[in-house]
């Protein structure tokens, strides 16, 4: 076992894993986290805690994750390269490990231009691949990035995100190979709406044998409305929403939108589940956490396996 996390155990045991996402509040209210924890508990194996997603200041991922740990729900902290240099990242990760956090997702981080502090200075001391390498070396070599020894090393189950829908398409699988080489254990992909394109990417992934080296969790997200679908299609870089999906949302009208959004999500889960090499799904419903249990139930994923040992 690399970290002994629940997620690691579930995947190692060969179960189809289910993870969700939780956005910490834009404030210091611990209650918000507790409530969301109660909503997500028992329907997923672990929950991503975003790290100032879209560069908007929110409660720190590690602090929020510590609340989850105390309530018995397993967090996957996200760590971006945007706000911290290698000194701060390593320090935070020692602390996270000491707080009982066992899963970590390494991200480049959205540029601050569209966040709520566009005038800030960014860091990008490391990129996500160098970040992965650093964390793997901390865990497996017991070494800091500078080469110095760590007495008690942080032990994380290390993940990365990958976006099969951004460009250059023909390079995306190769870039994942770099992340695998750098040392990840699992991947969560960008939200899949275009299953066909996703399957093509998975073909390339399998050609490189990556699905045998790491666990690949397909990202999915329920749509709330036609507006959200259109916004994602045209305004979010690297997001591919096919017209059929938008048409399905349009067809049901305003009242039926949320239900249809859920249905589409479950349909996509059914489809990606059949793709060879997919080890789980990651359900992203930030600020709509209550929808997750319904989706998980409908997809037939309940009850979640009790990881033993």
């Amino acid at each position: 076992m690399k970290s002994g996390s629940n997620l690691e155990k579930v995947l190692e045991a060969g179960h189809f894993a289910v993870t969700a996402e939780l956005g910490p509040p834009k404030g210091a209210d611990a209650e918000v986290i507790s409530k969301k924890t109660d909503i997500l508990k028992d329907c997923v194996d672990a929950v991503n805690i975003t790290d100032c997603q879209t560069a908007v200041v929110r409660m720190s991922s590690i602090a929020a994750a510590a609340i989850l740990v105390s309530k018995g729900l397993e967090p996957i902290i996200q760590m971006t390269c945007r706000d911290r240099n290698r000194i701060a990242i390593q320090s935070d990760l020692l602390g996270a490990s000491a707080l009982g956090i066992k899963n970590l997702l390494c991200l480049t981080g959205d540029h601050q231009k569209f966040g709520n502090h566009p005038q800030s200075k960014n860091v990008f001391d490391l990129d996500s691949i160098q970040l992965i390498k650093m964390i793997k070396d901390m865990r497996d070599e017991k070494k800091f990035q500078c080469g110095e020894e760590i007495e008690v090393e942080p032990r994380f189950f290390v993940g990365a995100a990958e976006n099969p829908f951004s460009d250059p398409f023909e390079y995306r699988a190769l870039r994942l190979a770099k992340k695998v080489e750098a040392g990840i254990d699992f991947v969560q992909t960008q939200i899949v709406y275009n299953v066909e394109k996703f399957a093509k990417w998975m073909e390339m992934v399998r050609e490189l044998g990556l699905h045998k080296k790491v666990y690949i969790l397909a990202g999915v997200a329920p749509l709330k409305s036609v507006g959200m679908a259109k916004y994602m299609k045209s305004c979010v870089p690297g997001m591919d929403v096919p017209n059929e999906v938008i048409e399905r949302m349009v067809a049901v009208g305003k009242e039926g939108a949320k239900e249809e959004g859920k249905n589409i999500c479950v349909d996509i889960i059914e489809q990606v589940k059949k793709i060879k090499g997919i080890a789980g799904v990651h359900i992203m419903a930030v600020e709509w956490e209550e929808v997750v249990s319904g989706i998980v139930e409908k997809a037939g994923f309940l009850p979640r396996p009790k990881a033993s040992g």
Partner: peptide
Amino acid sequence: SKSLLNGPCGGSQDG
């Protein structure tokens, strides 16, 4: 924009 040495990030689209 992010001075990445192992890019591109997931935000690259249509060049």
